[in-house]
Design a binder for these strands. Sequence first.
DNA 1: TCTGGGGTCCTAGGACCC
DNA 2: TCTGGGGTCCTAGGACCC
Length: 387
Amino acid sequence: MRRILHVDMDAFYASVEELDDPTLRGRPIIVGADPKGGRGRGVVAACSYPARKFGIHSALPISRAWQLCPGGVYVRPRFERYQEISRTIMAILRRYTDLVEPLSVDEAFLDVSGSTALLGPAEQIARDIKDRILSETGLMASVGIAPNKFLAKIASDLEKPDGFVVVPHDGVQHFLNPLPISRLWGVGPKTAARLGALGARNVSDLAAIPKATLVDTLGVSGEHLWHLARGQDDRAVTPNWEPKSISSETTFEEDTRDVKLLVDTLRSLSDQVARRLRKQKFRAGLVTLKLRYASFTTHTKQTSVAQRVETGDDVFRLALRMFKQFPLAERVRLLGVGTGMLTREGENPEQLTLFSGARTGERLARTVDEIQDRFGDDALRRGSELT
DNA sequence: TCTGGGGTCCTAGGACCC
DNA sequence: TCTGGGGTCCTAGGACCC
């Protein structure tokens, strides 16, 4: 029987801010976009527990948060700092097993089935992990222990903060039955509504629906849900996930039809994406342009290319071509540039290029990377960015 | 209350081929 | 003269997650 742990940091971004500035302790901390006195764009990325008492939660529009709690502490996210602490946490987890699968900066699955002989029962390992994280980072984590990933994830969430929930092998259905279906991984508002139409509000309702009915209404995810309703999930804990896409997008402070601004933004988004691509030693076979109008209607276009790309110039050229196919009758709210069909250098499916000159741009890009890595991004700038 | 930025996975339609 | 069936690939959109 497998013993899976899900470790999930409590109010992670807000807790880090509190850690770095103890004067914030106990106050309603809201990490997210600049509220700008209630007129800010964007959403709450995370908030402390005192902030939640005001009805604030992540993904809430920051303007709404400002209305609910004008006296709160509003801070911009510092992702690099969160990343830094995340690395410390993940290193702690890897002391207990190699089978650590990070899900995001602040949570991970562990398969400790093979560690119990040496380290004791999963419960003891989990206690130890919580203690270690607290003593070595000063931050609190919640842990779920269960026979599989899906149950462990639900369990870790159940008694936050400082949660510790064990789902015994013989108590799975008892644990699941009363939970609302929206707790299930993959059941959002739309799916919950469709399942509600079938009479399902909690997991026991869902478990009563025949598999064929679920498959008819939801396709393969219906089949998946049928298993989840029974606590069945045999997915392995997989360390070393390879990314499938890399993208960068930005929402303008004000919706705009200024073509120069739009094209300049496209340029810098392309550079950012390409740089991250090279940093991870990828080339892309697919470039995606994303455009959201003021009305919030969102469109994408993508181009797949036989000759893999990795320079800002190449990404930009393709993105610009797609951008020109969009009408600009309406103002634009967001632009995004993405890359996909990623391949590592060396394992490239493309034939070696017949035109070695085509690689000059890539050599230049790498040189620029090196200089920016050593002296900072401001050491080298595009002429077009200097206006 | 107007709704970020980074992702993953699934679906559906059309092009294209045999 | 109006047309099958199966397969694959590409593209656009959408649901969902943190």
